[in-house]
Design a protein around this nucleic acid. Structure first.
Lengths: 232, 232
DNA sequence: TCCGGACAAACTGTCGACAGTCGGCAATCG
DNA sequence: CGATTGCCGACTGTCGACAGTTTGTCCGGA
């Protein structure tokens, strides 16, 4: 986010221009450089990034499949604007995926994965203490991603990764959080304690509570701030 | 599947060439016109479909996001070849999504949706009686799609639709089914009875059994036939 | 003042072409 | 005889350009 977006955006990451454009656009959307509902001009993006329209179009298709953009035929691509209903859907789906992961892990969770998850709670708390909101969100998502990954179901993980992009989209809506690291640690240790107990009912209870808190936080936050989808 | 694939593939459906190409490729993959793992040449496809490479590439990206193709940088696109592990993942994810839908519906399922689902079981049985394997699969998927749709969660539905493409990919692997319509009807009425009872535990039991049967059928079928991913 | 139509600008959909890269084959060397 | 290296063909990644459509604006009339 410190590099300029007009000339060259670090060209040494992937040999694939499409992925670079996709990463760049993703970041721009998440940090709010584009307003929700904004129309993205292909030629404008191509000019500002110094590339042709073809990579732009393919990257846009990629981001559309991830739910960050929506396309209208003959109109172009627009930054996805979430309304309250979609917000509910997203967190409901997250609950669906994570419940499943918790249940799978309740039956079979190795000591190593549990230890790794405990460590991740540590780095999450560090991130929260650092005051960087984006870092905190990212480490939080990493924790949950590790849980999904521990199930060994890569298809499930792919769905979670896609959903994570939309969850990041939510952070452009919330105002401020400044939660203290201790409560964050408690909140996540609750999940790990449930997993360690191996009781499915307790696991389910824990994840329901955890995601319910997150959902309430987001919907309350957007309720206080501006309306989600403002008319152009 | 009766029209030629060399010249023009019915040009009067969508004004969007990309969608037409995507539909065409999807069908070609599902009916097994391409073998799993086969490399798709962009120029070859463009020539045989009579279009440029740009729509081919964008359609391929779309199908990649749906899990029908996989891309290797500088190598091109390949038809997704499912191994046994991925098969397990797919059905596990399906269980995840449908369990969630069943639970949501157990609490609130209107009489209309129940009636619509009963009707769909009827058309599913008709399709099974007709002897057309592809029709039976399609109507079966429609039934489950309607269940998901009844939850009102469109994000959940999108995930199911994506997964449905991979489920269709599975039918290229199975040998033969010739299940009789009666058992199919019983199998689905079990789900609806559970929904009507409103008992979550019974709903969960029913969907677990239902999907377990489908999964066992597929993995057994592929075990009997050829190996899934043959080495090039 | 307001509404309708026509014109112009901008944009998307699609195409053909060029350059860089990868895989396969053959000739050469140890 | 086997391994290596150079070359050739094919293909993907990317680009600029043209055509059709949408959008915004301006002008005329009621």
């Amino acid at each position: 986010m410190s590099e300029s977006q007009s000339v060259g955006f670090k060209a040494i990451r992937s040999p694939n221009l499409v992925d670079q454009v996709a990463d760049h656009l993703t970041e721009a959307i998440i940090v709010g450089r584009f307003t929700p509902g904004e129309r993205l001009s292909e030629v404008g993006l191509a000019r500002s990034l110094g590339v042709s329209r073809a990579p732009i179009r393919e990257a846009a298709r990629l981001l559309e499949s991830r739910g960050l953009l929506v396309s209208q035929p003959r109109r172009g691509f627009f930054v996805r604007a979430l309304d309250a209903s979609e917000l509910e859907d997203i967190f409901d789906l997250r609950l669906c995926l994570e419940r499943h992961a918790m249940e799978r892990l309740a039956h079979a969770c190795t000591a190593e994965t549990l230890a790794a998850l405990y460590r991740q709670v540590g780095v999450l708390c560090d991130a929260a203490a650092s005051g960087s909101e984006s870092r905190r969100i990212e480490e939080d998502l990493t924790f949950h991603r590790m849980m999904i990954e521990a199930t060994g179901n890569r298809r499930l993980l792919k769905n979670f990764d896609d959903l994570a992009h939309e969850l990041r989209l939510c952070i452009t809506l919330i105002t401020k959080t400044h939660e203290d690291p201790d409560s964050i640690a408690d909140c996540h240790h609750l999940l790990l304690d449930a997993l360690e107990s191996g009781e499915p009912a307790r696991c389910r209870e824990a994840i329901d509570y955890h995601i319910g808190v997150a959902r309430d936080f987001v919907v309350r936050s957007v309720g206080e701030s501006r309306p989600l989808a403002r008319p152009h």
